[in-house]
Design a protein around this nucleic acid. Structure first.
Lengths: 190, 190
DNA sequence: TCCCTCATGTAAAAGGTTACATGATTTA
DNA sequence: TAAATCATGTAACCTTTTACATGAGGGA
């Protein structure tokens, strides 16, 4: 009656399954993948990824081939098992509550009536610039998707996922820049 | 040489200081305050707030009066000390890197090419509705700010902080709804 | 020479959620 | 009668970050 190989899959686990559904990868690759472009909505350090992969493997959701290398450390190339794909699909269809936001800049804005307004303007300028850069990067990537798929990916193509998250990223960053600019204007005209 | 009363202040600590800079409050009040409207960009459970307040008090950033009550449990009314205000202002002026986003719906969107598109549409509809409700709520609150401050709060008024975060909230939710609608359209026309 | 990339892990600490614990009053 | 509000806390657990650990090869 003992429950074997049953472990609760975390959101990070599903993030990894989602990446592996596209192509087999090493833990190292995945830690890069969770930077770019997935990093926009989910991120993790390699110290979290390696143990998570071990759990997924133990639960039979992923498997790996060991590739021996001479000039580089050996590597484990992970791929989805049919069970892993099934679990990923189950997760996709499960209901989800709205994710909570944590944004330290907005938290600061809440107390900005106590701050020096010149310093506040400078802070907002810096963030406007950082978000504008991200916006440009996502727009560049969306152009790339268009080129690779002839205008529009089909709904069954992994490129659809890329398009979907880039669209969200673009909207998010564009709106963030607009807010920073509104803040700057408000702070500047006494 | 021993370091006494020196503790690193967490972001939650600053969130609490920012609330106490507006008015003295109990831990209970603060846990409500971190729901509404601050919850949009920072949130915490009371189990995190009470120990954090104790730390802030130990460090001399806040103090409290014990109010004895007969029909209700006794309460501690916290307020900012001058040191607390100084630290809050220092934090406001400290540089800040861009906050990372964690959004499980966008994570799902990335793998949505594997899902049933009808179910996906339903999920997007639910989220569009939830975000539209928040949008309406923030807009209602912004109207209230306008009425309370005769159109526009001054930069030195705490209402400016409220206006700032509501503006961000409104932009965020409006853009989120727009993305959900774009997703629905894409998923519906084959 | 120093830093970056590839490549995998572990350990410790910090941050955050869920559950446990108590108990009177008010509202549905 | 059941749930919500007021009011404060602790304990256990889970998640995430930062630091420790190793080591070869390539580029500035």
């Amino acid at each position: 009656m003992a429950k074997i190989k049953e472990m609760k899959i975390t959101t990070l686990g599903y993030a990894l399954l989602g990446l592996l559904a596209r192509s087999e990868q090493t833990g190292y690759d995945l830690s890069q993948g969770l930077k770019d472009p997935v990093s926009f909505f989910w991120h993790a350090q390699h110290s979290q990824i390696y143990p998570e992969l071990a759990k997924l493997e133990f639960s039979g959701l992923v498997k790996y081939k060991l590739i021996e290398q001479t000039e580089r450390p050996d590597k484990k190339v992970y791929s989805l098992t049919p069970l892993g794909k099934k679990h990923l699909e189950m997760w996709l269809h499960a209901p989800l509550t709205v994710s909570k936001v944590r944004d330290e800049l907005v938290l600061k804005a809440y107390s900005l009536w106590l701050a020096d307004s010149k310093a506040a303007v400078q802070m907002m300028r810096d963030h406007a610039e950082a978000h504008a850069e991200r916006l440009a990067e996502y727009e560049r990537r969306l152009e790339l998707v268009k080129r690779k798929t002839n205008k529009q990916p089909s709904l069954e193509s992994p490129w659809f996922g890329v398009q979907a998250v880039l669209m969200r990223g673009i909207g998010y960053e564009r709106e963030y820049v607009a807010w920073c600019k509104w803040m700057i204007e408000r702070l500047e005209k006494t």
